[in-house]
Amino acid sequence: MGGGAILRYSLHRLAILLVVVFFLFPIFWIALMSLQTNESILRIPPSMVFTPIFDNYQALITGKLITQAGSLDLPFMKNLFNSFFLSAASVAVALILGVPAAYAFARFKFRLGENIAFTLLSFRFAPPLLVLLPLSLIYQTIGLDNSYVGLIWVYQLICLPLILWVVRSYFEDISPEIEHAYRIAGHNWGQSFLRIAIPLARPGIAAAGLLAFIFAWNNFVFALILASADKQPVTVGALAFVTASGIQYGQIAAAIILSILPTLLLALYAQRYLVEGLSLGAVKG
């Protein structure tokens, strides 16, 4: 390796390092904050030198927030579970409904097909607040407010269009010839869908599922209006950190770290499906 090559290599590495620092610094800073007291967080000038404490995590996990004003109940772990349950169930329902629908939209031309697909997409660009008022009234009437079923149903507004449109384009990229070949070999329509179409669209299904999970996890307004304390996800539960005695930055930071973890682990797991080549060179071209 010549001198020029070494220089280029180093510059390349430096550029990557800068990008990584730029994107990861906020998370790193929050991780530091989660290990400090409110006083040490708010001191001026800020410093990276401090004695780490785990009080924040302890408060979140035990659910007891001790402040100068006294002890406060924090349902954070319950919120975390709610977030996880609501997001996972919503994505599961959206996948069960959305993947076959995406396949139908990709493969078959039927009456009003494009209109139906576009209507589903339009749910994504309707402002949530516009639908929330009538929705909450309807939910109260039919008794779906403050229920997991009701929330999962509303979360389909977030998950279903996303999964439908992303997976549809993946199905469209798979040559129908491959499925034809499988059917000619003697397998019926259902087998070709399950053993050819779905495995080949798996990177797309994984990507769409992951994105839908993140969007559902980050949702705030639907849960704020339609769920009360025991059904609230972390996004709404985080409001509790704004207490009478001030904003609990340490706990907020710890809560953020804890609530990032599930999506982060899921993303790491799903990554190998995301990078898997789509068509794997089946059809020449």
Partner: peptide, 20 residues
Amino acid sequence: DPPEARGIGVALQNFALFPH
């Protein structure tokens, strides 16, 4: 008849192998 009921052997021009 659907293709699976015909029992015909077919080699398509672009091979159409199952990539997975």
